[in-house]
Simulated scan of single mutants.
Amino acid sequence: MTRKQKRLSILAGFAVVLALATTLVLVALRDQIVFFYSPSDIAERGVAAGEPIRLGGLVKTGSWTRVGETNDFVVTDGQTEMSARYVGILPDLFREGQGVVAEGSVTPTGSFLASNVLAKHDENYMPRELVEELKRRGEWEPEDVALGASR
């Protein structure tokens, strides 16, 4: 083998090792990826029951009920609504009419069972994905709600 062929074979070996490592990392992370959906996206795409997702939208005014640590509320994107249930203590900033992102899965009955609830940091915050969805539909009102804006 010439010197040039040795270098080329070493580079090819490194490329194979790098491709193998990248493949292993992506396969390992595949189960950790959680996609964001609005209630309309879930209705349109038919998300499978039990698949871990993030549900984002606004907590519908007048929909939140609490019995002990069981919290039932409705998440809406202005077009579609989805009932959600969370067992546990909600964040202090959780309120009706405010932005929320709930991690969990859709149940076989079509409701959402949350394993974690994330509330917005102030009354003007809304998840970026929800803002993009509202803009796509032409329902975005920037004077009422701003992405991450502070008072």
Results as ranks from 00 to 15, higher is better:
residue 95 R to P: 01
residue 81 E to L: 07
residue 16 V to R: 02
residue 72 D to A: 13
residue 27 V to P: 00
residue 25 V to S: 08
residue 57 G to I: 00
residue 35 F to D: 10
residue 25 V to Q: 13
residue 23 T to D: 01
residue 36 F to V: 08
residue 51 E to P: 01
residue 59 V to W: 00
residue 28 A to H: 02
residue 19 A to R: 01
residue 12 A to G: 11
residue 36 F to W: 11
residue 32 Q to T: 10
residue 77 D to C: 07
residue 60 K to D: 02
residue 63 S to I: 02
residue 16 V to M: 04
residue 94 F to D: 00
residue 31 D to V: 05
residue 15 A to T: 13
residue 84 A to L: 06
residue 31 D to Q: 11
residue 58 L to R: 03
residue 105 S to D: 15
residue 106 V to T: 02
residue 28 A to S: 08
residue 11 L to T: 09
residue 48 A to R: 11
residue 42 I to A: 12
residue 27 V to D: 08
residue 50 G to N: 10
residue 41 D to K: 07
residue 65 T to V: 15
residue 102 A to E: 00
residue 83 S to T: 11
residue 72 D to R: 13
residue 43 A to C: 03
residue 56 G to N: 10
residue 50 G to A: 08
residue 37 Y to P: 02
residue 49 A to D: 14
residue 41 D to F: 02
residue 19 A to V: 06
residue 38 S to R: 06
residue 93 L to Q: 07
residue 71 N to D: 14
residue 103 E to A: 14
residue 45 R to A: 14
residue 109 T to L: 05
residue 10 I to Q: 13
residue 27 V to F: 04
residue 60 K to S: 12
residue 78 G to P: 00
residue 86 Y to T: 07
residue 53 I to L: 12
residue 14 F to R: 04
residue 38 S to N: 06
residue 17 V to R: 10
residue 101 V to T: 03
residue 21 A to L: 00
residue 29 L to F: 13
residue 10 I to V: 15
residue 110 G to E: 12
residue 72 D to Y: 02
residue 49 A to E: 13
residue 80 T to V: 14
residue 75 V to I: 14
residue 86 Y to L: 10
residue 15 A to Y: 05
residue 13 G to S: 15
residue 104 G to W: 05
residue 68 G to M: 05
residue 105 S to I: 08
residue 107 T to F: 09
residue 39 P to I: 04
residue 96 E to Q: 15
residue 73 F to A: 09
residue 46 G to T: 09
residue 110 G to H: 11
residue 110 G to A: 09
residue 13 G to L: 06
residue 87 V to I: 12
residue 100 V to G: 01
residue 62 G to Y: 06
residue 37 Y to H: 14
residue 56 G to R: 03
residue 81 E to S: 12
residue 110 G to T: 09
residue 98 Q to V: 00
residue 74 V to P: 01
residue 105 S to V: 08
residue 70 T to F: 03
residue 94 F to R: 02
residue 61 T to M: 13
residue 45 R to I: 09
residue 27 V to S: 08
residue 93 L to A: 14
residue 13 G to Q: 07
residue 84 A to H: 03
residue 100 V to L: 02
residue 66 R to S: 13
